[in-house]
Design a protein around this nucleic acid. Structure first.
Lengths: 177, 177
DNA sequence: GAATTATGTCAGTACTATTGACGTAATTTC
DNA sequence: GAAATTACGTCAATAGTACTGACATAATTC
């Protein structure tokens, strides 16, 4: 195991870099940035016995109160079987409540409780702090550049998901679409 | 299950937004951007029976040829038991070779083979394409803004990991540190 | 009334990760 | 040179998140 087996290819000793004009710098930065971005809430979640999946559900239920199970699945891009356990735990622990859909009683609208709202805030706080620190010396122009870039990284057909909550508005309760 | 249990908290019907000055916009954009950023290579990996863990290992072995197992663990922030299976598969499929460390024969230096280099490139290509598209109308200034932001999102004490491969240099073979 | 839709659930599986324990070979320390 | 440490590998057990497929129920639509 210390020597490559005879049939194995020879080791390439030069670093991959900019071959075919590939942007390894940003690829790698994105990996590191996201790794550390998610590490903050992970520590809080561990205290509750929750994982990242719980965080994502909690986040979107707080951001779009009243969304249905189907809408949540669409945003998260997971299957309902994957969601089931996580959602059940959040409901059992009184972070989220289900309300029968007013127009269509088959639907379950998902809402945060005060407890769920508080946890969502606690999880977002260190992430927001990290973002604020990263934008420390930046003005509105730089901020806009970064937002534009991140938005452009999202698949065009999925970009609609982003703007459901209008930028600075709070009260829109997602009641009709 | 359609009505909240009596003890459960009441549903909060207003969207969380900018409470305590928290930057939900960028938090959410970052989630969507990374979700789609990783979805491109996922499809290629599936053809090989590989997952994201294989991608990360392959990426860093190509970026820093000759790194040791311990260094790789440090970059990925996982345990050696987690790495073991993934690394073994990449070695068995002739994407990576191990070479006994020249100074310390306990160490295993990891190098890509031609096959491993090709796969790393194939995985990076769609990601780079996505980045290029997102930067389409951007100049060098915007690009610098984005790089600075992403770098600032990384934990300061881990930022050293980033600059191991100098921006535009290719040949540095990581031989001495 | 029949078909479709929204949701829930059961069973089985896969991938990635964890902790803990143990073994081996090589290096370092005394 | 013996002892301790280090680098790596491996076995076992477990957890979290995801998947596919199948089936059930209630509500809506046709």
């Amino acid at each position: 195991m210390t020597d490559p087996s005879p049939a194995a290819g020879k080791p390439i000793r030069t670093a991959i870099a900019n071959e075919d004009g590939i942007d390894f710098a940003i690829i790698e930065l994105f990996f590191f940035a996201y790794r550390d971005f998610t590490s903050d809430p992970d520590q809080i979640l561990a205290e509750y016995g929750f994982g990242r999946a719980h965080h994502r559900v909690l986040h979107f239920v707080n951001r779009r109160p009243g969304l249905t199970v189907a809408e949540l699945l669409d945003v998260l891009k997971i299957t309902k079987q994957s969601l089931a356990r996580v959602l059940k735990q959040l409901i059992d622990t009184d972070h989220i409540v289900q309300v029968q859909g007013p127009r269509d009683r088959r639907q379950r609208e998902l809402y945060p409780t005060a407890k769920g709202r508080a946890l969502a805030l606690a999880l977002a706080r260190p992430q927001s702090r990290r973002i604020r620190a990263a934008l420390e010396d930046s003005g509105a122009a730089e901020r806009a550049t970064i937002e534009r870039f991140l938005e452009a990284m999202v698949n065009p057909e999925l970009r609609a998901q982003i703007d459901i909550v209008p930028a600075q508005t709070s009260g829109k309760n997602h009641g009709d679409h």
